[in-house]
Design a protein around this nucleic acid. Structure first.
Lengths: 212, 212
DNA sequence: CTAGCATGTGAACACCGTTCACATTGCCGA
DNA sequence: TCGGCAATGTGAACGGTGTTCACATGCTAG
């Protein structure tokens, strides 16, 4: 975690506030990360948060970046086991593409609170870029998708023509399903059903992108 | 609009509050429909809202149902011009399916505030079913998708095997793109680009569902 | 050792959702 | 016709929120 300010009175507030925010968001979603609750959980005064964050939105974005890291980490672990498998590159490439989508969906189903919070990170209006240029220029989860699609091109399962703008159908389908399953009409369905539907969605969109 | 209570003092508050809520939500999204603001816009005391709605959530759901109707209406108008076209039933069926998806996307892009509000309707935890059984059992926009897919089966462009659970890939892709374009990284992109990407997403998911 | 500054605090303000006793108004039966 | 009743609207209040500001505290550079 990029931490510049040296610990003074507390030790490292800012980090402690972000951790408390992650705890609250895990069960309560984005609405649960409130200035007063977070500072209360950290055993500190509400006003102290404003020494480290400009306002409530800045705190929210900081916690959201944390949950986005968790999402990216879960996706990487999901596909790491596949890359170790040294089978044919064609199958491997599409397996990685599927793994990216399924990792995204699995994380959303397993941690809906964190997932809903991570979505705030994709909103450019909210993610204030600190001064110059920064990491998080393109969100890590999205970068994993781009890499997987590029891998499909080099492996020959996707033509150069089929590659252009392929990110959006893929991300749309996977993200849309995660949203529907998490906050929409599929909410509360049993886990096996949701997992099966998730696989179905990924299979259909991969087929659609390849059919070109 | 289902309106049971007879107008007493005001004329028809409830309806006036819902209208005011729609006005506020159009520019400000779901967060803008607040009890105090809505009653203020209607020129009435904040407490008066509680004669017609149990709490803030109930008011929000009522306004969301209104915006959902607007969404369904926009989608119907989008496909109505296609049904008039008496060409081959195969092309007609897939054109209707595409029209449903594009109507959904176009509405989201044209009215992001209303669209974000309409999403609340798909959440079963929020849409309180008044007593027995009701309309809105399955949301009208979703019903349009189901009908379009069934039409593809009868027209022969979709096998019975390919039809099962086809709603979810379709809705996921279209809804996911609408969400990404509205609140995500595509937010603020110019309209022609978004429209072209929307067409691309719809084309890919339709191809994916047909390829089975 | 001391001056200065980063950090944490307590109280206050405005806004929000919500409740409650009370005022107003239309309707319906005697 | 008229009186009462129930439905509707009101003003003030309570607890919660984000946010600010003067003030207290304690590390650290010189």
């Amino acid at each position: 975690m990029p931490q510049i300010s040296t610990p003074y009175h507390h030790g490292d507030l800012r980090a402690a506030l972000i951790d408390a925010g992650l705890d609250l968001a895990r069960t309560g979603g984005p609405d649960a990360v409130r200035v007063r609750e977070v500072t209360r959980a950290a055993g500190v005064s509400p006003a102290s948060a404003y020494r480290h964050f400009a306002d409530h939105r800045a705190l929210l974005v900081a916690v959201a970046l944390g949950s986005q890291d968790l999402l990216a980490q879960a996706m990487r672990e999901r596909i790491s086991s596949l890359v170790a498998d040294a089978s044919g590159t064609q199958e491997q490439a599409v397996a990685r593409l599927r793994g990216v989508g399924l990792g995204y969906i699995d994380f959303a189903l397993a941690e809906p609170g964190w997932f809903a919070l991570a979505l705030l990170t994709f909103d450019p209006a909210g993610a204030a870029a600190p001064s110059v240029t920064v990491a998080h220029e393109v969100p890590p989860p999205f970068q994993l998708l781009i890499d997987a699609l590029d891998g499909c091109v080099t492996a020959g399962v996707l033509s150069a023509e089929g590659r252009v703008n392929a990110e959006w159908p893929c991300w749309s389908a996977v993200h849309g399903f995660a949203d529907i399953a998490t906050r929409g009409p599929l909410q509360g369905q049993d886990a096996p059903t949701l997992a099966a539907l998730g696989v179905h969605v990924v299979d259909r969109i991969v087929a659609g992108v390849r059919s070109r």
